[in-house]
Amino acid sequence: MKTSIALAVSAAFAAVLSPAVQAQTWEPTKNVEFIIPAGTGGGADQMARAVQGIVAKHGLMKQSILPINKAGGAGAEGFLDVKNAAGDPHKIIITLSNLFTTPLATGVPFNWRDLTPVQMLALDNFVLWVNSKTTYKTPKEYLDAVKKAGPGKLRMGGTGAKQEDQIITAAIEQRTGVKFTYIPFKGGGAVATQLVGGHVDSTVNNPIEAVAQWRAGSLRPLCVFDTQRMPYKEKVTKDMSWYDIPTCKSTGLDIDYLMLRGVFMAPGVKPEHVNYYTGLFAKVMATPEWRKLMEDGAFNTTALKGKEYADWVAREEARHVSLMKAAGFIAGQ
């Protein structure tokens, strides 16, 4: 019963959300490669594989989606692969913030304008976490402690160097005048574990990376780097839901940052190709599995496409340039 409702809803959604459906004449004639410019097990990887699973389970496509990890050079490998596949409609790529940060930090020649924007799937939140054995209850208490300990004495763990986690860290430093020692690790799961083990003092993990440790009582969220609270009111731990985490802004730490989980295609593809995929993702996003994924990972479910999407990406790019310039992360700076 539930499924049939979901299917009806999804059909309705597809009809409402994609007026291009009627014009959709093209469909894939072979398997579609879904490039992931990150390693196995990370957030982008999980999302791409979830899409693969949902498409297969509901038979949304005659051909299959094949996720392929191309993580080399902080994702440059994957982006260059798509950039060089001009006109190929059987290749899509999921992005994270390295769409902006990698070319800026390493000077590898690519830009999001080299690709064709398809669809924003969701935005990933960032939460400031500390170990629950500490006494910090608010960002202010923690940041005061950082200040008091002296520059570089407390450690912020994060994924990768000169990427989103370090950008947020640098933004906190600029806003508040504290100084962390930033320690880069290879994956979000490892970062959360390092925090539980007490090897770092705080992290800015995505919700999905830290939720298990939070539920087990090992970690404590201090605030979320979004302009509004996360909308999920179901209890995650005994007494807290995602909604109960205050925004950093409301606690006096005026920083907001969201990470793009969006889909792009190769340059030079035809509009019907793009239309096909926006139609497909509209169907994917209407499934109960997708909603569950959004809730488990406490995602911000903004899902733009077309010009709005491109405009959003352009604004975000400009913001990354200024954030990274301020932090001194730009190659050859």
Binding site: G39, G41, R49, G53, G189, V211, A212, R215, E289, K292
Partner: peptide
């Protein structure tokens, strides 16, 4: 890592 992704998709949350 891939198994881990699977657990989450099935609605199981690896963790303590």
């Amino acid at each position: 890592a891939v198994l881990l992704g699977g657990l989450m998709i099935w609605g199981l949350q690896p963790g303590p």
